[in-house]
Amino acid sequence: MLDDRARMEAAKKEKVEQILAEFQLQEEDLKKVMRRMQKEMDRGLRLETHEEASVKMLPTYVRSTPEGSEVGDFLSLDLGGTNFRVMLVKVGEGEEGQWSVKTKHQMYSIPEDAMTGTAEMLFDYISECISDFLDKHQMKHKKLPLGFTFSFPVRHEDIDKGILLNWTKGFKASGAEGNNVVGLLRDAIKRRGDFEMDVVAMVNDTVATMISCYYEDHQCEVGMIVGTGCNACYMEEMQNVELVEGDEGRMCVNTEWGAFGDSGELDEFLLEYDRLVDESSANPGQQLYEKLIGGKYMGELVRLVLLRLVDENLLFHGEASEQLRTRGAFETRFVSQVESDTGDRKQIYNILSTLGLRPSTTDCDIVRRACESVSTRAAHMCSAGLAGVINRMRESRSEDVMRITVGVDGSVYKLHPSFKERFHASVRRLTPSCEITFIESEEGSGRGAALVSAVACKKACMLGQ
């Protein structure tokens, strides 16, 4: 009897593995994704193909990295998701002549009506938060230079001027797309009239992360975010950046690689679950690469896999709870928690219980395998993109072996128990001629924006502006 049951459990697990095998990517698959990513990057950089390229390769006008001589107080704003952060950054000489960066910050959550109302409502709310922060720190009387981390696709015309191309991540505030974001912020500050600010720089969160990590390690020339969304930036040779005049030196390019796949480059790798996630998203047909990796989508992918296993009578005796059938019910943090389970399955059992399920031991094991399959594919897909960037940098610099540091931020990278190990191992397999160091950014977005502002202020002083 026991043997029969054991055989049935083994057969069930084997069927589960057959279904989950769809998520496995072979090294040849990853090399294919990497080569296609490089081709799209090239198209994004070139003037004649930029418009139709899915990977936009947006110039950021960040050319210099901090040298350690900029000092002063800077205000930093960070808008990239449902939370908005205001930070005071003091850049100065530390002990023994070292450079020191001290920060104080406060988080504000953005109400739904500000995210989806008008641009005026959104930026009025942001300036209200700045006003509140300055009151708390008794700094209303000071006109501070301000660095703005704005983590949406922007076409820069200068370091302090950028046109919002399109909202992502659930934002829909009308009247912002096609307009200068810094102008919208300046107008809102003017409307309030109770404080003055000098907006000197606007950067993407990947750029802010790279600059913040450069402060720790001067070989950091790539910034990457794996959180709600997924994106990367890197220092490109100016001669390859056709959208900006000049051939000397390097400029940081914001790849906006989340949109890779929007022209069909990933079609052969998309599964039924991916198509369902895409169809029910706020932007169907867009940001397809990001939807395979980002935390906004990972939990939902797992939920759809679990429903398939229920329908195949391989999980929960073929019956799903009402909660499990509800879109968004299986949160991405559950994926991390399930994979963090120590082996007694308590954590998995508790999560499934909150979803109205009474799982068996085998159910718990199957749910864990589903989570591992989805998150491992995410790590491997992400590795193909980064390997594409790094191999490109090595080739354009004609280096036999390139040493490089990548600064990384984002909740999936930082909080998932195995993502970074799987990701690092896969990147290294795909970049055999590179020695890569990964560092995690601390308060990256805010500190990085302030350091970019410090560079901009120093330049302005040198130019006598």
Rank of each mutant, 00 (worst) to 15 (best):
L2Y: 13
D3M: 03
D3L: 03
A6K: 07
R7M: 15
M8Y: 14
E9G: 15
E9Y: 08
A10G: 15
A11Q: 13
K12Y: 15
E14M: 15
E14A: 05
K15S: 15
E17V: 08
E17G: 05
Q18D: 15
Q24G: 13
E28N: 03
D29C: 09
K31D: 15
K31P: 02
R36G: 05
D42W: 15
G44N: 02
H50R: 15
H50K: 06
E51V: 03
E52D: 03
E52G: 15
E52Q: 14
A53Q: 01
V55W: 01
K56H: 03
M57Y: 03
T60W: 02
Y61A: 05
V62W: 07
S64N: 15
S64Y: 06
T65M: 11
S69P: 13
E70D: 05
D73Y: 02
D73P: 01
F74W: 03
L75A: 04
L75Y: 02
L77W: 10
L79I: 15
T82H: 04
F84S: 05
F84Q: 02
V89R: 01
V89W: 03
E93K: 15
E96G: 13
E96Q: 12
Q98E: 11
W99H: 15
S100R: 12
S100Y: 02
V101N: 03
T103C: 13
T103R: 02
H105Q: 04
S109N: 12
S109P: 15
E112G: 11
D113T: 13
A114H: 15
A114K: 13
G117N: 12
T118L: 02
E120K: 00
M121P: 04
D124T: 07
D124L: 03
D124H: 03
Y125K: 01
E128C: 06
C129G: 08
C129N: 03
I130M: 07
D132C: 07
F133A: 03
D135E: 12
K136G: 09
Q138H: 14
M139R: 03
K142P: 05
K142W: 08
K143F: 05
K143V: 07
P145T: 04
T149Y: 07
T149M: 12
S151Y: 05
F152C: 14
F152P: 13
V154I: 10
H156R: 13
D158P: 15
I159R: 15
I163M: 14
L164I: 15
L165I: 14
N166R: 15
W167K: 14
K169F: 09
G170L: 12
G170P: 07
F171M: 12
F171A: 10
S174W: 10
S174P: 09
A176S: 11
E177T: 12
N180K: 10
V181N: 08
V181C: 08
V182I: 15
L185N: 04
D187K: 03
I189D: 05
R191F: 04
R191Y: 02
R192E: 00
M197P: 12
M197G: 12
V199T: 15
A201P: 10
V203K: 12
N204S: 10
D205N: 15
V207Q: 14
T209Q: 04
M210R: 01
I211E: 03
C213Q: 00
Y214V: 07
Y214K: 08
Y214P: 07
E216P: 02
D217I: 01
C220F: 01
E221Y: 03
E221F: 02
G223T: 01
G223N: 01
I225D: 04
I225T: 13
V226D: 04
G229D: 11
G229H: 02
C233L: 02
E236A: 01
E237F: 11
Q239C: 13
Q239F: 08
Q239L: 08
N240Q: 05
N240G: 07
L243I: 12
V244Q: 01
E245K: 09
G246Y: 03
G249V: 01
C252M: 02
C252P: 09
C252K: 02
N254F: 12
T255N: 04
T255A: 10
T255K: 01
W257M: 08
G258V: 01
G264L: 03
E268Y: 05
F269C: 09
L270M: 12
Y273D: 01
D274E: 02
D274C: 00
L276Y: 13
E279L: 12
E279S: 13
S281A: 05
S281D: 12
A282P: 10
N283D: 10
Q287L: 13
Q287C: 08
E290Q: 13
I293E: 00
G294T: 08
G294N: 04
K296M: 13
M298N: 04
E300W: 00
V302E: 01
R308M: 01
L309N: 02
L309T: 02
V310W: 03
D311K: 02
D311C: 08
E312C: 10
N313T: 04
L314T: 10
L315Y: 01
F316L: 11
H317C: 07
G318R: 06
E319K: 06
S321E: 10
G328I: 01
F330T: 00
E331K: 15
T332N: 11
T332S: 10
F334M: 05
E339L: 06
D341Q: 01
T342E: 13
G343T: 07
D344K: 04
R345E: 10
I351P: 03
I351Q: 03
L352V: 09
S353L: 02
L355V: 04
G356H: 06
C364V: 14
C364N: 04
C364W: 03
D365A: 12
I366C: 05
I366V: 12
V374G: 01
S375L: 12
T376N: 08
M381S: 01
M381C: 11
C382E: 07
C382Y: 04
C382K: 01
S383D: 01
S383E: 00
A384P: 01
A384R: 00
G385I: 12
A387I: 00
V389L: 13
V389H: 00
R392K: 07
M393R: 06
M393V: 13
S398C: 09
S398L: 07
D400Y: 08
D400F: 08
T405D: 06
G407K: 05
V408L: 08
V408E: 08
D409I: 04
V412E: 01
H416M: 05
P417C: 08
F419I: 02
E421D: 11
A425Q: 10
S426R: 13
R428L: 14
R428A: 09
T431E: 06
T431V: 10
C434R: 00
C434T: 07
C434V: 11
E435D: 10
I436P: 03
T437E: 15
F438G: 00
F438W: 11
F438E: 01
I439T: 07
S441E: 04
E442N: 13
E442G: 02
E442P: 11
S445W: 14
R447S: 13
A450F: 13
A450S: 10
A450Y: 14
L451D: 06
L451G: 11
L451I: 12
V452S: 03
S453E: 13
S453G: 13
A454F: 11
A454I: 05
V455H: 02
A456S: 08
K458R: 11
C461L: 07
Q465L: 13
